[in-house]
Design a protein around this nucleic acid. Sequence first.
DNA 1: TTCCAGGACCCTG
DNA 2: CAGGGTCATGGA
Length: 273
Amino acid sequence: MKFKVRNFNLRHTLECGQTFRWQKIGNYYYSVWNNKLIKVKQQNNYLITNSNKTILTYLLRLDDDLNKIYKTISKDKTIKQAIKQFKGLRLVREDPFQCIISYICSANTNIPNIKMQVFNLSKKFGKNIDGVYSFPSPEQLAKASIKQLKECKTGFKAKYIKKTSQMIVKKEFNLNKIKSLDYHAAKNMLTELPGVGNKIADCVLLFAYGRMEAFPVDVWIKRIMQNIYFKNKNISNEQIVMFAQNYFNSYAGYAQEYLFYWAKKKPEKTVCA
DNA sequence: TTCCAGGACCCTG
DNA sequence: CAGGGTCATGGA
């Protein structure tokens, strides 16, 4: 089917580095949701897909009022330029378990390498859905051996993947409980999972639980935030989080994603607020 | 060869 | 509490 979208850019949304579960083949992006293959491409103001508007609205946050968000976070020249350059970039809604494991894989590596690990895990432990592999369940990763997990090139993170999956399977950790907690309590609870610290907890809250005040601070965001807002003074990650949540208000997470993509696309350029 | 990448964890002082 | 070393992997 085909339906109209406003204020949306599929490429920016799927390639800005927030999700590792869409693969581009030809003009289409492919993924799996609820054991069904999803393919989608954009032509001007239309999405063309084998799925439907309800599912894609959910996964790609087409229900977010982007103009309202832009109005809230457009605090200075830099963020305005990032918004202008990546107009239509939206956050995604990922499955929490998939998001947690993907970001555990993200530790101390780069985006192509994360994608490779996530792909390897899916191929080895997921199901083949019309040629695209689903992401494995907690049960499947909990019973996997460390050796098998390392064969997916997850390296020192293999033990975290297994332990985290086991905690979820044994109900020592309740993914649904996160929804009922406020931001700080939810973040603290997520860091109980092995391999999940403050940064990854913020990623999970932002990309899987829709907590748009979450502001993940990685090496890129730290550099650009220090450069733009702190005159290159060295400052702790948690101080950056607090500044951003105060500065960008309830949509700090959206600002983060634009600044992150901006920082990666414009590494040579320094812009001051 | 060395450095770096969407960090977390552990050990020191 | 802050600071540094370590951990697998692949690309530049």
